[in-house]
Amino acid sequence: MSDAARPGGGAIRAPAARPGWVRRGQRLALKLADLRAVRARRGFDGLRGRYYDTLWTEAARDVGASVTALPGGIHEIRRGALRTFVRRSELMLDSALAERLMADKTLTYRLFAEMGLNLPEHQDFSLSDMRPAAELLSRHPAGIVVKPATGTGGGRGVTTGIRDTVSLGRAARYAASFNARLLAEPQITGHNYRLLYLDGQLIDAVRRDPPMVTGDGRTDIAGLIRAENARRKAGAPVLALSPLIIDRDCLNTLAAAGHTPRSVPRGGERLDVKTAINENAAPQNHHVTGEVHPDIAAQGARIARGLGIRLAGLDLFSADIAADPATAAPVFGEINVAPGLHHHHLTAAPPEGPATASCVLAYLLDRKEGVMTL
């Protein structure tokens, strides 16, 4: 096995391959360790269901329609002879195959590259051959990210802030417990944005900041996270639809700031506790639709239309969403089919215009798209 040269001297050696039975045992151990996180997320199922029940009830009222809750979290929405069915953020627009294809991050990057988009450098790899990831790390010693290449969402299996091969091996084994195909890419700087398109029209954009807690001078970070999860689960008001999980991403983020879960922040100190933004809460989400540079908005529309995704959540990184993309060079991450509409409702302040779900529902019924006529 060859070494990958580290810029400035030295070398990074890919973690040694382990026998198959060892790898299988490690993946099983990681899955068992993840059971606590699974139980924590399932503890929010009731809140998530109630939230979307309210969301669609209010959206139906806004457009003069009626709504009936059906088993399985499905809502039947009627206006005159028109009828549509929704399930949380799933609409009668995009196919299950389209969702599956766009969930494959490697395929998405290939399609983005064919469209001439600015992408992060990335490497496919597996536990049986870690060399591509180790070589990427050697080129980006400031840190890389490892994630499953497909089969997950919501940040599951993702580890950020990887700066050495020990962390790389640990992150790869964690990601492989979700999917054998793995993806490594550099840690990208800049803000994380979600642009929401409906049939190629930009209908909302939010800046999504990392999850954070605020110190009280007495409670350690683990305790602050427990208190934050209790507030979230109480749902009064609804702040988030998932808990904060102390996982490897959390540990790496804290370590980079010189902390551990047992550290006690100063009173009033605001501290990012994860780098992946999927588990953030309403105070960390900000509407920026009016700030999006026209060329970025147009480029996003071209992507959504080109890939044939009707309701598309386009994720990108940029230091400034208002800057000319010719100079700011935003980096495109992924495109989500049936993206979570709650990201556009659970925000620090309400949007200036109509609520996103109401806009979507009005579009469906007014244009007779994704509906039945009975």
Rank of each mutant, 00 (worst) to 15 (best):
S2C: 11
A4H: 05
A14L: 06
P15S: 09
A16K: 12
P19L: 08
R23Y: 02
R24I: 03
G25Y: 00
G25A: 13
Q26L: 15
K31S: 13
D34Q: 15
R36P: 08
V38E: 14
V38C: 10
R42E: 11
L47C: 07
Y51R: 06
Y52A: 07
L55Y: 04
E58C: 02
A59Q: 05
A60F: 01
D62K: 09
D62L: 09
A69F: 06
G73W: 00
R79D: 01
R83Y: 11
F85P: 11
R87E: 10
S89V: 00
L93H: 02
L93C: 03
K105T: 01
L107R: 10
N118T: 12
S126A: 12
S128N: 13
S138C: 05
K147D: 05
A149E: 02
R156Y: 07
T160Y: 08
D164L: 03
T165F: 01
A172G: 03
R173F: 15
A176E: 02
S177G: 03
N179G: 06
L182A: 03
H191F: 06
N192P: 06
N192H: 10
N192V: 11
L198Q: 02
V206K: 00
M212K: 11
M212G: 04
D216L: 10
R218W: 12
D220T: 09
I221H: 01
R232V: 08
K233F: 13
K233N: 12
I246K: 02
D249L: 15
C250D: 07
A255K: 11
A257C: 09
V264H: 01
R266I: 12
L271T: 04
A276R: 04
A281H: 07
P283D: 06
P283W: 07
T289M: 07
T289G: 09
G290K: 08
A298H: 09
G308T: 05
I309N: 01
R310S: 07
L311P: 03
D315R: 13
E334G: 07
A338R: 14
H343L: 14
H345W: 00
A362T: 12
L364Y: 04
L365G: 08
L365T: 06
R367A: 09
